[in-house]
Design a protein around this nucleic acid. Structure first.
Ligand SMILES: [Mn+2]
Ligand SMILES: [Mn+2]
Ligand SMILES: [Zn+2]
Ligand SMILES: [Zn+2]
Lengths: 144, 144
DNA sequence: TCCTAATTTAGACTTATTCTAATCACCGCT
DNA sequence: AGCGGTGATTAGAATAAGTCTAAATTAGGA
């Protein structure tokens, strides 16, 4: 669990050779409060409700910079649209095939796979699991 | 391991309420011979080297129809581009972070996760694992 | 063979993402 | 305070992925 205070972000960004601009902080702050795995466009719309305004190019530039610096993850699941999340802790994903909702699944909920043996002992550095099924609210809606 | 002979395809397509057109057969035949996880555009380019020609719309229509019918899988990994594969057997994926190569990893190479417990005993119907690291040929290129 | 609903097609359209070239902001130096 | 350089932001153009439309074609059953 990584806490993202402003000064920690500032120093890590500098270590990555990046300035901490208001736009960059706004995007990271937004993502660190969200669990919705928003698209770039959703982020832009939400941020631009208040000052400072960020252009579409800046949202993408910022997301790419934050990804390179390790603050943000991009995920691509079931369509050709990137979704973003703050890097808080390691987790997997559950995607509801009915409503598309993306749920985080903590690694502790999943028995770890043996790192060796995943691919005949060759260089697997990490892995992520995408689970699919019916989320709880869709399940209720179906069975009642 | 599902074999895709023409007559098997024909009957399964009919069962799915689909006509077996030359374009559909060509796409499925192409994918069943490929392990490259090609994009729709790559499929179109390769198919159109010989008759019959398939338009972009038909390639997408066909891929979507074959996905719905269960003959083809679409996967989205590290960018906003769909990639396609014939449904042959269940497997996971390894993606090389250096060259982007996508490698199939048979489920037998990975100790199965307990179906129960993946998400606090709730409705997980299936899961897929994406492993990342350095593929063998990039590894050789680096270490020699 | 004939009929018709399903399929294919070219090209327009939409959406996602990147690029471009001009402006702007931040810094250290004078 | 003014200058200059580097990097960031911007609007809008450009590119790329995928869908839609409306007309022409065709698979496959009668
Ligand atoms: Mn997540
Ligand atoms: Mn595969
Ligand atoms: Zn749901
Ligand atoms: Zn490689």
């Amino acid at each position: 669990m990584t806490t993202h205070t402003r000064s920690q972000i500032e120093s890590q960004m500098r270590a990555a050779g990046l300035k901490l601009t208001p736009q960059r902080f706004a995007v990271l702050d937004y993502l660190s409060r969200s669990s919705a795995h928003p698209t770039a466009e959703q982020i832009r719309i939400d941020l631009n409700r208040r000052f400072p305004r960020a252009s579409r190019a800046t949202v993408y530039n910022t997301l790419n910079a934050l990804c390179r610096a390790g603050f943000v993850n991009a995920i691509y699941l079931d369509d050709a649209v990137g979704r973003y999340e703050a890097v808080i802790n390691s987790h997997h994903h559950f995607v509801c095939r009915a409503c598309g909702h993306i749920e985080d699944v903590p690694v502790e909920h999943v028995r770890a796979l043996p790192q060796k043996g995943l691919r005949a002992n060759r260089k697997v550095e990490n892995y992520e699991i995408v689970m699919r099924g019916i989320c709880d609210s869709c399940d209720e809606r179906t069975t009642d």
